[in-house]
Design a protein around this nucleic acid. Sequence first.
DNA 1: ATAATTGCAAATGCTTTGCTTGTGA
DNA 2: TCACAAGCAAAGCATTTGCAATTAT
Lengths: 135, 135
Amino acid sequence: MNNIEEKCKTKGVRLTDQRRIIAEVMSKATDHPDVDELHKRINKIDKKISIATVYRTVKLFEESGIVEKHDFKGGKARYEQAPDEHHDHLIDINSGEIVEFVDKEIEKLQNDVAKKLGYKLVDHKLELYGSKIKK
Amino acid sequence: MNNIEEKCKTKGVRLTDQRRIIAEVMSKATDHPDVDELHKRINKIDKKISIATVYRTVKLFEESGIVEKHDFKGGKARYEQAPDEHHDHLIDINSGEIVEFVDKEIEKLQNDVAKKLGYKLVDHKLELYGSKIKK
DNA sequence: ATAATTGCAAATGCTTTGCTTGTGA
DNA sequence: TCACAAGCAAAGCATTTGCAATTAT
């Protein structure tokens, strides 16, 4: 059984054949696929799963805190399994490749800024866009 | 003459009656209006300016570096005049209010992170979402 | 003069939804 | 059993675009 399927059980999210397959595909993904790409991968396993179901499931998983949704530049939402440890993203503006990174120092400063402005930090989004340095 | 109109001249962006009015409205704005809101304000000055023109103009201004586009949560793009000094945003998750802030320390760390990963930082997006602390 | 701009409505692209049929616990 | 899920096609929403008429330089 895959990671996401397990989390569904833990969180009481009802499992169906379709959801199991969607969970499997998302668990395997090491990138940040959009719904269309997910649908393609899913259809290699089961041709009959509709894109509407993928949209509904991905939304359900997100609302249950099982996956994360990202709105990077480009118009289409992209998904990844909710990580154990929070990370941010650097997007290669030439290739579209995404690099994940963690920076505790930045995290801390964000909290400080929010507090200084009189707010409790609830969520944040940090995206870096860069181009590869050739050497 | 307003700020944005001036920048159009500097950058060689052709001016029309419509663009002058859109420039005026955007120059006056102290918030971060979406296209629909801009259109409403514009129509108070000239009822005949279509929303298609607002979309086209706002895009033109953005591509010319005269205004900035933001994709905050909510689905609709929001705009502000390109500031002299870069700043980031904190969005009040309850009221939708937006607070601008500058943090040199975070900026620097972002550059460091990118460099460490082998990238030249070209652009970045930092959005904080928070709720007001009552006292 | 003439290349660019506008307004309108139609088209687009991503995402959601109503409805009927199918199904997991 | 029966509330919930899936499939399909239609609808929704923000944004873009083709085209004919208008305008800036």
